[in-house]
């Protein structure tokens, strides 16, 4: 188990390193000079050259990359030119709001597991068809559009909930529902296929033969077996959830990491972009590692199965 955990963690470190490299090259390839962004269009050539030297932009790319990695290891992401504060502080200050929203959405999305299990247990019956059709439709809607339609109906027409911002618990309802929508649909689909697959296994047939009802068969003989892929595949899509959050936060002016990233990208605030992207990558990796360990705990086949 320890060996398994170590291997999983090593993969995680590799992924964060890969993401950092990717971000570095995207930012260096992007047109526009960071020094000019920093100083504004009125800067003289001498000022720009000075800033470039200060930022290390006049050095060869491999040297820049080496410096960049050094800065990452010491968690030094530089200052945001717009806010004049360390980028990491800014990004971390936005993290709690994002975590709150993601957790709320995950709680809502757990409904998907219930619906998916129902659909899988009654595969091919009307309840399956209804749930599957609904899940496909929900998954096919652009999340930001679901958000806007929720604002239209719940906030503007019925005047039940606030449409944007933070403050009261009511403020989180619409963003959380919006963010949860595609994830719920996804969990429904994953759970459905996993449960349906487990239902076809011999031990389930035996449980039926023993005279158990469908409910007893599902709760006693299917749920735990079917849980492993739901956990691993579900966790793989945590990144979908966090990616979705970037857009959903912008719809609802939710003061999280995502909306900060979008404004930073528009303003070419490189240090924030870099810090935010890497923080999100780190969160995704942690979730995946956690999910792998949970899956290994749930299912000995995973931890004993060797390399994969």
């Amino acid at each position: 188990m320890t060996k398994y955990a170590l291997r999983t963690a090593a993969t995680g470190v590799l992924i964060i390193f890969g993401a950092a490299t990717l971000v570095f090259f995207i930012m260096r390839l992007a047109p526009g000079d960071q020094a000019i962004v920093l100083l504004g269009p009125d800067a003289t050539a001498a000022e720009v050259a000075d800033a470039r030297a200060r930022l290390g932009l006049d050095q060869p790319l491999p040297v820049q990359y080496w410096h960049y990695l050094g800065q990452l290891v010491t968690l030094d992401f530089g200052e945001s030119y717009r806010f004049g504060q360390p980028a990491l502080d800014l990004v971390l200050s936005r993290l709690p709001a994002s975590v709150e929203l993601a957790l709320a959405a995950t709680v809502v999305a757990m409904l998907g597991v219930v619906f998916g299990a129902l659909a899988g247990a009654y595969r091919g019956r009307w309840i399956d068809r209804g749930i599957s059709g609904l899940a496909l439709t929900l998954y096919s809607m652009p999340p930001f559009w679901i958000g806007i339609m929720l604002i239209l109906v719940m906030a503007l027409q019925l005047r039940l909930l606030p449409s944007a911002g933070v403050g009261t618990p009511a403020h989180i309802v619409l963003p959380a529902l919006t963010l949860a929508a595609p994830f719920t649909a996804l969990l429904t689909r994953i759970t459905r296929s996993s449960v349906a697959e487990t239902m076809a296994e011999p031990h389930v047939r035996r449980a039926y033969a023993k005279g158990l009802s469908t409910r007893e068969v599902v709760t006693g003989h299917v749920v735990r077996n079917a849980a492993t892929p739901v956990v691993t595949v579900g966790a793989l899509h945590i990144s979908t959830l966090l990616g979705g959050a970037v857009i959903v936060e912008s719809v609802f002016s939710w003061p999280g990491l995502g909306s900060l990233l979008v404004t930073a990208v528009s303003n070419r605030d490189y240090s924030i972009v870099q810090a935010a992207v890497l923080l999100i990558a780190a969160i995704v990796v942690c979730c995946n590692v956690a999910a792998d360990l949970i899956a290994a705990r749930l299912d000995p086949r995973v931890r004993l199965g060797g390399a994969s």
Binding site: T11, L14, I15, G18, A19, L22, V23, I26, M27, A30, P31, G32, L236, S239, T240, L242, G243, G244, V246, I247, L261, V262, V265, S266, R268, V273, V277, I280, A281, V284, V285, N288
Partner: peptide, 19 residues
């Protein structure tokens, strides 16, 4: 592995926004 773990839309936002 690296690209799978990374939210694709995030990458797209950064690229589309900076270029």
């Amino acid at each position: 592995d690296v690209l799978m773990a990374f939210p694709g839309i995030l990458l797209a936002i950064v690229i589309a926004g900076l270029f």
